[in-house]
Amino acid sequence: MNIKTLVVLCTALIGTTVLTGCQSTTSNNTTGNNRQQLLLIPNAQLNAEVAQEYKTLISQARQAKALNVPASYAKRVKTIFNRIVPHTTAFRQDGSSFNWEINVINTDEVNAWCAPGGKMVVYSGIIKQLNLTDDELAAIIGHEMAHALREHTREQMSQEMAKSEGLKWAGKLAGLNSDQMDLANLVSKYGFSLPFSRTMEKEADVIGLELMARAGYNPQAAVTLWEKMAKVSGEGSALEALTSTHPTNSARINEIKKRQDEVMPLYEASKSKKATGTKKGGKKR
């Protein structure tokens, strides 16, 4: 690699990294997830487009008789979700005013996701194949809701937009050929995009931990959840770990264990509040 190409690569990466520190979507939370973010794409436009796509997906699932079945799964998911939603205001004041919605789709897929604006799907396969407890399910739901609260999709799209434009103009100024531009894009991917994606996943893990604790679900279940996931997915090779957008299961478990002491008081307070709000026999005072 000649010096001209190296300068362009470094300039593009440094320039894009500097652009990431613009604002934070969350604040005032116990776990301190207030990293500055680059948000170029209009929030309302993205959420509206996603909501329409979500509506179509739910309609298709309903037509296929795969929506919110089994009913027992749907009931559990919605109960946990509804307990967590009010606690989103711990991260942002408008958290409870998101257009939060959750549905179960009956497939064997071991997955769940929350789209921008709060539209969420849990696939029945993840509940069945991992034999999830309510606390473990809360860890999943909290994690996915955290992505929406931090607007990670919007942030990633903004980063890719800035990175693409930065590389394009740097390449033109330096007169790079197509092979050199391909190299620049590859370095940018592994030096910038993937590490930031892993950062977002770590944020979602920790925010999800706080959300579930505030809602009265045991944060220790996040560890058993990822231990179950490790058995299903495995760790993969060193190369897969390098090129993955997600942290390894073992890295996730270690980080969650480190952060549990921060959120356990929230869990204990939630349990105490529930206990003092009831009499024997389960009747409220």
Results as ranks from 00 to 15, higher is better:
148 A>E: 01
74 A>C: 09
146 A>Y: 00
40 L>H: 01
253 I>A: 01
218 N>S: 14
284 K>G: 12
230 A>F: 05
219 P>H: 02
251 A>Q: 15
101 E>L: 09
56 T>Y: 10
136 E>R: 10
132 L>D: 05
77 V>M: 02
219 P>Q: 05
2 N>R: 09
160 E>M: 01
228 K>H: 04
201 E>R: 13
162 A>T: 09
261 D>C: 10
150 R>F: 06
278 T>C: 06
53 E>I: 01
46 L>R: 01
188 S>G: 15
163 K>T: 10
127 I>G: 00
264 M>Y: 12
14 I>C: 09
196 F>L: 13
269 A>C: 00
270 S>R: 05
227 E>K: 15
222 A>I: 09
257 K>E: 12
101 E>P: 03
172 K>C: 02
105 I>G: 08
237 S>F: 11
163 K>C: 07
110 V>F: 01
189 K>G: 03
1 M>A: 12
244 S>C: 07
121 V>T: 03
210 E>S: 00
203 E>N: 14
139 A>D: 09
35 R>E: 13
108 D>E: 08
62 R>E: 15
223 V>A: 08
169 W>Q: 03
49 E>Y: 05
273 K>C: 08
2 N>T: 11
33 N>W: 09
158 S>C: 14
187 V>A: 13
177 N>R: 07
231 K>F: 07
258 K>G: 03
45 Q>D: 12
35 R>Q: 15
220 Q>F: 14
117 G>V: 00
170 A>R: 03
134 D>A: 12
133 T>P: 01
277 G>H: 00
58 I>K: 02
29 N>T: 02
130 L>E: 08
48 A>S: 15
267 Y>N: 04
137 L>I: 02
264 M>H: 11
88 T>V: 10
56 T>C: 09
88 T>I: 11
154 R>Y: 02
106 N>G: 08
201 E>M: 13
1 M>T: 07
183 L>S: 06
247 P>D: 01
153 T>I: 13
228 K>Q: 03
152 H>G: 06
93 Q>T: 11
242 L>N: 06
105 I>P: 00
15 G>D: 03
119 K>T: 03
171 G>E: 08
158 S>E: 10
11 T>R: 14
102 I>D: 03
96 S>F: 09
277 G>T: 06
22 C>P: 05
112 A>C: 01
240 E>H: 10
194 L>R: 15
40 L>R: 10
223 V>R: 03
113 W>E: 13
92 R>L: 04
149 L>F: 06
140 I>A: 05
221 A>I: 00
189 K>N: 04
198 R>Q: 10
238 A>H: 06
8 V>W: 01
29 N>S: 14
97 S>C: 05
17 T>C: 13
171 G>S: 14
71 A>D: 11
282 G>S: 13
141 I>T: 01
206 V>P: 02
9 L>N: 07
178 S>L: 14
44 A>M: 08
180 Q>L: 06
149 L>Y: 04
147 H>K: 02
246 H>V: 00
180 Q>R: 11
248 T>Q: 08
13 L>G: 08
